[in-house]
Design a protein around this nucleic acid. Sequence first.
DNA 1: CTGAAAGCGCTAACAT
DNA 2: ATGTTAGCGCTTTCAG
Lengths: 335, 335
Amino acid sequence: MTLKDIALECGVSMMTVSNVISGNHKKVSKQTIEKVNAVIKKYDFVPNLMARTLSSKSSHLILLVTPYVKTQELDSIYNQYLTELIASIERELMENSYYVLLRSVYEPKEIEVMYKTWNIDGAIFLLPFFNETIEQIPDYQNKNFVLIDSYADIKGVAYSRCDDYQGCFLATEHLIQNGHKKIIFAAEHEGNLLLEKRFRGYHDALKKHGIDFTPDMCRPIVPNYEGGLEFGRSINRDTLNFTAIVSTSDLCSMGIMRGASENGIKCPNDFSIIGFDNLSIDEFTVPKLTSIDQQISLKGKKAVEQLLNKINKTEKENVASIETKLIERESVKKI
Amino acid sequence: MTLKDIALECGVSMMTVSNVISGNHKKVSKQTIEKVNAVIKKYDFVPNLMARTLSSKSSHLILLVTPYVKTQELDSIYNQYLTELIASIERELMENSYYVLLRSVYEPKEIEVMYKTWNIDGAIFLLPFFNETIEQIPDYQNKNFVLIDSYADIKGVAYSRCDDYQGCFLATEHLIQNGHKKIIFAAEHEGNLLLEKRFRGYHDALKKHGIDFTPDMCRPIVPNYEGGLEFGRSINRDTLNFTAIVSTSDLCSMGIMRGASENGIKCPNDFSIIGFDNLSIDEFTVPKLTSIDQQISLKGKKAVEQLLNKINKTEKENVASIETKLIERESVKKI
DNA sequence: CTGAAAGCGCTAACAT
DNA sequence: ATGTTAGCGCTTTCAG
């Protein structure tokens, strides 16, 4: 069943059917529209987008780019994170009649190949691992790129990310409001644009409430489970010179809690901690972990919004900054 | 840059270039092949698959089908699970020059629409939620379907799933080998094909080692975190008439451990437990959770193998049953 | 408002 | 071993 068959049965030309389907309703009379739609419905006709793309160049295909790494190498945070992100993006694109091609990419060249192969209409980079490669892609300014979680400053692309500054500001302020003054920041942030934003939020919250920041309050740990575990194990009654920790990931927080508990230092009685990401496992830890929620689905939705703005050349702000939320559980104690 | 341009520059016909690209090397002389390949390389020419599909009908596009549900409704197990599964499938398809279209599907009709729209070459159903809908899809026997984790018995489709029977057999036997005799099975399995297999594995392991099964050894709980929590809370010194639990999900195990510990009943001293799925969070629980590993990546790889067999009409067994593995951690105590 | 002609980039089928 | 013809299903362009 093709456009031609529909046209024949309706006694009109292919162009008329095409116009009805494309929603060019100004070019067709009401009666014709109804007649054509009836026949389309009768046969459950669905236009072939391969053919449409070939002649019109626009495929309605969006490339979702993930890094090509061994699955095991992906920090487990990405598991939950990516599923939710991809699901929300797919849903939002679907509602706008776009389709999702998923591809793990190792070198920038592959992006270009995908464009030539499938006439891609745009791409969303799901993780901020592509900052350096994007500018190597030919004509990247005109390729409708959206970067997620990236603070790179690349001309012509759009961004969707959570407000990392505000997230750690919130966390820090919450600790202060619970009576904490000796609050440390648990991540090496130098050289990492995202972590620098988070550090800045922590720093400025201290400042706002008249607490001096000194360099020893920043602990240069790697913010994953192992890094947290190592740091946690270094905590004992002698080194416990703080009452609260601003962490930059839930898994890191879990590592810290586990490591410290090996020395009999327990959260929340001996120290309070706030994570980042609001993973569902936060409900399963002991104590349940207070965390900063990233609103992942909203981030995906906004990424699609940015993309459609680019595709439709709607002149808009090219950064979506998603508000974070504090999710209170049991890892912060009022002192 | 098109086939035509390459043909022109080489001084040959389009068909010759096409044959070189498709690997029809019997139809072209060695010199011509080299000449053509040189020009292709010179211009980084990539053939347009929209055009190829239009004339050849084969798109090299594979549909990955997930259920369309609210993200929040997806049990968190699927998060980690799906990411790893999708990553392994994408990788394997990519290596065979296939491309991945991702789509969440609400009703069977949508599958048919995707086929008409994009000339899909086959589909993999990532979760066993489609058993009832598949047979409603027109011509489903010839559509190259692979179902993951399904025990449905549908004509003409292929399957990739872990050996659930063997998984719980392994778990039960491991407990027995650690001296346990009073072992309960923690899931309502009736009416669920997959859970029935697991129960059978548990049952047969008991039998093999001369332990009688009595109906009270099967606890009809819902095998997720909440169900586990509820059951765990029901355990106290009076009701603790077993020494070990075969659970059918890691999250359920975590719920049980948490619920029981609220009553002062601790794993592994008061009872042993083995989970199912081997989630990475098993490393973070206290005690670390012994579990049955599903080899998710292998499952994805085998799913692709099944699919390619169908596409290439290679006559093979249409079920891939993935061996499970026991991952020992700290939740089983020798008694 | 409606239609005819031409062509998107490729390949199947049939030549030579 | 190589080339020619026709056509995949749709839209663009230009005419009426």
